[in-house]
């Protein structure tokens, strides 16, 4: 599993060497998520959350750190980090039996099926639909003014990728897209195990979009040498 995925993981050479050096068998995968070929002439450098599954212990500190930073509360006119309600987090850890843990977050897909699915016409000046890509960070952002809550983006993500986008239970507008916390992701910062990192990626890359169940299966095989039946209820 490790070798196969590393072959596809098209991150910078420095990181590549770093991870190999940690020890043969380190698996680092961008976001989640299986292979999909995508070419783009745009040479933009993006950064994305990478998971080292050999280090992740499933503690869910990332969920609380993400949630705290992305759901601030206003106290006396000051915006302060929230309490870290894990249900609001953009990164979610899936637990499995046999014991593997798979953190899942938005992969900043180069081809964004979610944006493709958005039915709101692109703005003539900015080229933005209700769902659009952030010009610097490359994150997927929802313009709450324009969004009509049709949930087509969430359906596209569920069908074609790992099902990251979830409509808000009330407004039906999309949530859970990774914000990279504006460039300094709190999940990376506070992971007690160094299992998460922000790695440079090229837009022009082979791309992972695997469901957590599939990753879990590969990890079970790696950790326990078992072809385990995957029992995650989700």
């Amino acid at each position: 599993m490790a070798d196969t995925n590393l072959k596809y993981a098209n991150y910078s050479r420095r990181d590549f060497i770093k991870h190999i050096a940690i020890g043969g068998g380190v698996i680092a995968v961008f976001g989640n998520y299986g292979f999909r070929y995508y070419f783009n002439d745009d040479k933009t450098i993006l950064k994305s959350i990478a998971v080292d599954f050999t280090k992740c212990t499933g503690c869910r500190t990332c969920e609380t750190a993400c949630s705290a930073n992305n759901h601030k509360v206003e106290i006396n006119g000051e915006f302060i980090k929230g309490l870290g309600d894990p249900h609001l987090s953009n990164i979610r850890v899936h637990h499995f039996n046999p014991d593997v843990d798979v953190p899942v977050t938005c992969a900043l897909c180069p081809d964004t099926p979610c944006i493709e699915a958005c039915p709101i016409p692109a703005d003539k000046e900015t080229g933005r639909k209700a769902l659009y890509r952030h010009s610097e960070l490359g994150t997927v952002v929802c313009d709450l003014e324009k969004c009509i809550g049709c949930t087509l983006c969430a359906q596209a993500c569920e069908k074609e990728r790992a099902g990251i986008i979830v409509p808000n239970p009330e407004t039906k507008k999309p949530e859970r897209m990774c914000t990279l916390c504006g460039g300094d992701p709190n999940c990376v910062k506070w992971c007690p195990y160094g299992a998460l990192s922000l790695l440079e990626i090229k837009v022009n890359r082979e791309f992972f979009a695997e469901k957590p169940e599939k990753i879990a299966e590969l990890l079970m095989n790696k950790f326990y040498h078992v072809e385990a039946e995957v029992e995650n209820g989700n």
């Binding site: 499933g58 503690c59 500190t61 609380t64 843990d101 950790f223």
Partner: peptide, 17 residues
């Protein structure tokens, strides 16, 4: 591998084969 309880940095639980 090591694994941890909720928001715990210790990961004292070990699984294997």
């Amino acid at each position: 591998r090591d694994f941890a309880c909720y928001v715990c940095p210790l990961a004292c639980k070990k699984s294997g084969v």
